[in-house]
Design a protein around this nucleic acid. Structure first.
Lengths: 193, 193
DNA sequence: TGTACATCAGTGAACGCGCGTTCACTGATGTAC
DNA sequence: TGTACATCAGTGAACGCGCGTTCACTGATGTAC
């Protein structure tokens, strides 16, 4: 389909990818132009040949993070379904896994950022709300026949809230207990096998 | 009990109170020494007579925000219980109210900050995790006889996640729909009247 | 295929602003007698 | 009760650092012939 990307395009994508990870690791405010460029193997001066501003990079990074983690989640869901689980069970187990608890920078961008989202300028709020909607839709698709949008919203909120609180409590035992509690609650209610 | 507070103590409390609101409105990074002092009716130079550092203020502000919003929540819960609701129903309705959706700066500090919490330095992480535990305990107290800590954790996570996503989607209709969906889900499951 | 030149991605120094922190000073509060 | 002095809360100017942004320049890529 696409012909081979130009050098410029390759570099651009590399910067965005680095930023998408830094964004989830450090938040909207914890991501600096010079840092990102350095991690992409460049000097900061070249930044404005690729992006109009720091915010423009952030907007792209939000979308990129959403696409990447959605793809990763789909992969895990399909692997889990291949082992005989329902789509919902697969999603819940993947989202509330220990790997996701620890892998913030490659994980769900909504879980990484949602308490900061309402505070962002329109430029960053728009792609952020898109990611929230994307998450709800992903849950909706995983629901069995007859699942309502309301159920999808509540499940999405529970997934996000659980991961955040578990991350805050820290990995050792308490965090894991929180994940397990939510897996049990969600699955026994929405997927009683 | 306490004798009347000194001028110094009064001022100190005023600064912390302003900071507790700014913290929830703007996040850990959105709160500046000069801003807070100005809102407290002072100049920024006097700050270090009250606090060893910006972080020291933030630590106090986190605790203060937790105490204040817990007190406010208790007030609403008792009012709701007086109208015949169970403790849990009262809590869920108060937490997932439109007033709380819009009143970030006077609301739950966990909902305002939780995605940023895991990133904080130990100085700020400690009081933050305390607030998470406090929220879970508040839910636990509202649960009917036989309610488990696991249930309290999941409900707390759902409350926090719902409020955040609803705030991100914005007040008009979508946010409210999200609140309503979560109220229904939680109450029909944990308080079927 | 090879050479000359134009285009363009990336470099690195510099600017300007915001912000946390410091400090010498002032004006008010309060205590000693 | 009144005066003299010490203590202390708050002021405002200044410092230094980090960081987003700009810009003149360099070295590499690629095109014309």
């Amino acid at each position: 389909m696409d012909s081979k990307p130009s050098r410029r395009e390759t570099t651009h994508e590399r910067i965005v990818e680095v930023a998408a990870r830094a964004l989830r690791r450090n938040g909207y405010n914890g991501i600096g132009v010079a840092d990102v460029m350095q991690q992409a193997g460049l000097t900061h001066g070249g930044f404005y040949a690729h992006f109009a501003s720091r915010d423009a990079l952030l907007a792209e990074a939000i979308e990129r993070a959403g696409r990447d983690s959605a793809a990763e989640m789909d992969r895990r869901i399909q692997a889990s379904q291949a082992r005989g689980h329902s789509a919902l069970r697969a999603l819940v187990n993947a989202y509330l896994s220990e790997a996701h608890l620890q892998g913030v920078e490659g994980g769900c961008v909504v879980a990484a950022l949602s308490s900061e989202m309402p505070r962002q300028s329109p430029t960053l709020l728009a792609p952020s709300t898109d990611r929230v909607r994307g998450l709800v839709e992903m849950v909706q698709r995983a629901l069995p026949e007859g699942g309502t949008p309301e159920q999808a919203m509540v499940i999405a909120a529970t997934l996000v809230g659980t991961l955040q609180l578990a991350r805050t409590l820290g990995t050792p035992t308490q965090g894991k207990a929180m994940l397990a509690a939510a897996r049990n609650a969600l699955l026994s209610q929405y997927d009683p096998t």
